[in-house]
Amino acid sequence: MAKIQSSMTGTVWKVLVRPGDQVEAGQEVVILESMKMEIPIQSDYTGVVKDVKVEEGSFVSDGDVLVELAD
């Protein structure tokens, strides 16, 4: 199962996908906010969203799983 992870510490500003959505590799799935900057997190894979592990306002660390894709 493919996992999309956070690349840094920050707060989730926007979640752009929902379970069941089709995502393409390179598509932005979550926008984090860290140190007054918006940091878009892209999916490295193409697939269907199985689960969104965070919600807007969640605090995440580097490496935390944000979104899981179904196989």
């Binding site: 840094m8 510490t9 920050g10 860290s34 140190m35 900057m37």
Partner: peptide, 13 residues
């Protein structure tokens, strides 16, 4: 700034 010196992305720690 606490950020990486190439892309200027935040680097807290």
């Amino acid at each position: 700034y606490a950020e990486d010196p190439i892309r200027f992305m935040p680097a807290p720690g």
